[in-house]
Simulated scan of single mutants.
Amino acid sequence: MSHHFQSISFQGMRPGKRLIILGGVHGNEPCGTVAIRRILDELERGTLTIESGSVTFVPVCNPLARSQYTRMGERNLNRRLVPTDFPQQFEDYVANWLCPLLSSHDVLLDLHSFHTPGRPFAMLGPRNNQGDLEPFTHEAEEEALARHLGVELFVDGWLDTYASGVRRRQQMSGCDEQDVQYGVGTTEYMRRQGGYGLTLECGQHEDTAAPEVAYRAILNTLAWLGLSGQVKPTEAANRTTLRLFEVVDRESPDDRLARGWRSFERLEAGELIGIRADGEELRAQEAAHIVFPNPDAEPGCEWFYLARAVDRV
């Protein structure tokens, strides 16, 4: 099956930030695509204008996954995102097109949704650091944008927590990751190119409110960065930040969650989270929050994450 890739760019009359906004990195997450097309319509009609800098929209990053309405085409585009001289899977061809596009911009807003019900939230990058895993120097700018997206919940600690899970599962079957680079997606790649970016999880996949969350976040981002000339948004009040600290894998198709968890539900110490196929009970070792619970996870892949509250954004 043949597919093509599409990006649409607008350039303002004055200099400014180079912003890129992505939708449809995963094919079963429609909110970003819907919101981007709504914004494009307003730009075409002239009810919204780009006055400074530039913005590039990618309504559907993964057209194969979108045509199938599945999370991925042949593999997860948002894992191990890197150009390759020897593309084999469809997502390799996407990466060869998308990565240079990301590199030519300063700021990324990547619009997603999630599997189970829960509150919209933004995924933050690391603190400024010169480490080997995810060196970064734009913490202040990234956090400032996060505070003005229109959501009040934030999550960080993704890549180092994911890396610990990769190290543990390297000897297990079921996933194809070979090293911690498998945790590198769009925002991680953007930071490695010297920019910064946020993943905004706008709600559950089919939540009718999710496209509105995405739409407002686009308008707020354009205004905050000074691209649209609109009044800058106010900071979200009552902000909460959770830091991921553990990922638990599903080992068997007979492993089951204790109940239908919602992302960010609070767990009390000792509370039953799930039961392994052999009857082993998984209980919270401390008061925490469950994040990204996936009752349909493939064996050997992430089943749920645990997070604790921190003082950050």
Rank of each mutant, 00 (worst) to 15 (best):
N294T: 04
L77S: 05
H112D: 04
L22R: 01
P211M: 09
H112E: 08
G279N: 10
L40T: 01
G157A: 11
L200V: 05
V313T: 10
R276D: 05
L133A: 08
T186S: 15
F245P: 00
T49A: 15
L98H: 05
V94R: 10
N238K: 14
E91Y: 09
F264D: 01
G53M: 07
P87I: 01
F86Y: 13
N128P: 02
T199V: 15
P15Y: 01
F5G: 03
P253H: 05
D85K: 06
P299W: 08
P211R: 06
V82C: 12
E134M: 14
I20T: 04
N76T: 09
A269D: 07
T137S: 15
N78M: 12
I21M: 11
R283T: 13
T84W: 07
D132M: 13
Q181M: 06
H148F: 04
W303E: 10
R276W: 04
E251N: 12
G183M: 04
L81K: 05
F304A: 09
I21G: 06
L43Y: 07
S228L: 09
R71L: 08
F245L: 11
D106F: 11
L22S: 08
V94Q: 11
L102F: 07
E280Y: 15
G270D: 10
F136L: 03
C31Q: 12
F245D: 15
L111Q: 04
H148L: 06
R283P: 05
R14V: 13
